[in-house]
Design a protein around this nucleic acid. Structure first.
Lengths: 166, 166
DNA sequence: CTTGGAAAGTCAACAAGGCTGACGTAAATT
DNA sequence: AATTTACGTCAGCCTTGTTGACTTTCCAAG
């Protein structure tokens, strides 16, 4: 179907074989991407789901449960299980909203921030090594392709995200 | 720690903020990456684990269970459950090895190949759209960074993999 | 020929982290 | 006053990962 010779110019990067390579690169790279935090989390009572919650609360302090739900793309029951344990263990604080008292605003406690730092240090270290090895131009391309792979809705989450916290 | 001003030249791509963006890009992009096959699989009795097995059997017909184990990075009990259902349903064929009769060589049946095609068509379509939108230079960078992110052992799996099927 | 160990398969039990459905409560909105 | 929204929770289920124990088959070394 895609023969790479259609245009005669440089469409060889769109062959099925090149696409397969890209697909496998995503698979193997994602394993590396999660490996370090996973290693830190194992042994604690937490897993990848906790890491994700902590990450996004750190990034958007005061975010609501609804916002988090939209970003993470899980059900509230699933998120609640994770959040409950984090709150019980004193890593996350849940404050009733001032303007709208139905909402819960989420913050990392100092203890939560400490774990966040530990996890993201590990993840950033790998990322930094990869970036450094690949160079700025490659990083630019990396980000461009990833962005193009996202669902449009998630792309908006990724780019903007200043909305919703009016 | 990383201030981006150290060299005076172009190290801004190594700031913590840039790294965080990269981390989130991986997170959101991976969701898109798996979304289409997941959608096809839901309703069938299969999941992402079945997809992965089918993909790598398609790519390396005649591969052994051990090889697959090494590539997928799961326990044999986990893989076995998946493989068993695929074999029972007639998507995968397991042939006793000629040279070493302990080994099982795995092949897709026509029915298995048909599902593989369906799944990878969907995944490739998204990949192709992303590649096309980003352009060849970006794709080059994308692959370079992903490769740098892999664990060394997995990078070897990714690159080589003509071995092991003596 | 015997035996050690590798490859594969199987059973049981368990955990994380998804899901649906149903229900409750408080607060905001209409 | 009625409805909708935001959140929490209980119960139950599924997929996919895990460990541990055990068996069968088979190759290869002693």
């Amino acid at each position: 179907m895609v023969d790479g010779t259609t245009g005669g110019e440089g469409l060889l990067f769109l062959t099925d074989e090149q696409l397969r390579k890209g697909i496998e690169a995503m698979f193997f790279a994602y394993r590396g991407f999660t490996a370090d935090p996973d290693r830190i989390l194992e042994g604690m009572d937490y897993g990848r789901a906790h890491h994700r919650a902590i990450h996004f609360i750190h990034r958007s302090p005061g975010t609501t449960v609804s916002n988090l739900l939209a970003i993470l793309g899980v059900t509230k029951q699933s998120l609640n299980r994770v959040l409950r344990s984090l709150i019980e263990d004193g890593l996350v604080e849940s404050r009733v909203g001032k303007a709208d008292k139905r909402e819960r605003h989420l913050y990392l406690t100092p203890k939560g921030a400490e774990l966040e730092r530990q996890l993201s240090d590990a993840q950033r270290a790998r990322m930094r090594a990869a970036y450094r090895a690949a160079g700025p131009a490659a990083v630019q391309g990396f980000r461009t392709v990833l962005e193009a792979m996202m669902d449009p809705e998630l792309r908006r989450q990724y780019q903007g995200l200043r909305d919703g916290n009016a």
